[in-house]
Amino acid sequence: MDAEIMALPIEKKIEKSKEIIAEAIERYGNKLVAAFTGGKDSTLMLWLTKQVCEEKGLEMPECIFINEGSVFEEVLDYVARMRREWGLVIHEVKNEDVLKQVNKVGDIVYVDKLNERNRRELERIGFHGDSFVFNPESFEGNHLMKTVAMNMFIEERGIQAVMTGIRWDEQEARRDEVYFSPRDNPKHMRVHPILHFTEREVWQVLRENRVPVNELYAKGYRSLGAKATTQPVSDKPAWEQDFDSLPERAGRAQDKEGIMKRLRDLGYM
């Protein structure tokens, strides 16, 4: 995390992001894809990309949407809406082989029924069990449903760069990320044009420019994960919440709503 860049005024941050996006499009052309999650951060990234393309007369990069098997209907609706309103090309990426076995979180995935690629991937991450419970946010689930699904898309299409909306202040693990971050297996570049935005600034830009956002944020969700494991943080819209005292990823923390939802999911009420 670069403290000097973090301290820039918001206009400078927008400029910085646009430069990175322009450079990525210039370098990778149609071998660049933008990862769109339906969340606020990748929405900001796409909005900035749209500005760059309009200003410079460039073609909008194609997008990928990773369907990890437990997606809010509101997210799917929103992705469809953005496809329509902004004319985006969005490829839906999913690990079909795993989804053949499961309908919902909690279903069992039997390893011997998986294809060779998925079995190899499980071994690679050190999983040696015969089965596991499907959950896109568990270690095995996350790897197969997100990482492997995306890697397969990269390999099949010869993609050279993937642009994502991660941010330095979002969580500890992201503090050391850089704007252009080379990856292996498969070899490609990760581009992170909005690393330097804070959550508050993301909302400021989206609200001031009337960028359409997912309706879940209006219902109090701060950070969108898998449907089965994400709860709203408060009954206030995300952009009106107390950013300083409530952590952005608190949707799973010990708030009342979270506990109640977990109990309800178990059928306790």
């Binding site: 979180v105 419970v133 959950n135 568990s138 799973r252 010990q254 109990l263």
Partner: peptide, 12 residues
Amino acid sequence: EPVAGGVPVEQD
């Protein structure tokens, strides 16, 4: 600090 907000459900 309670695990998983106090209602652990998933295997992890």
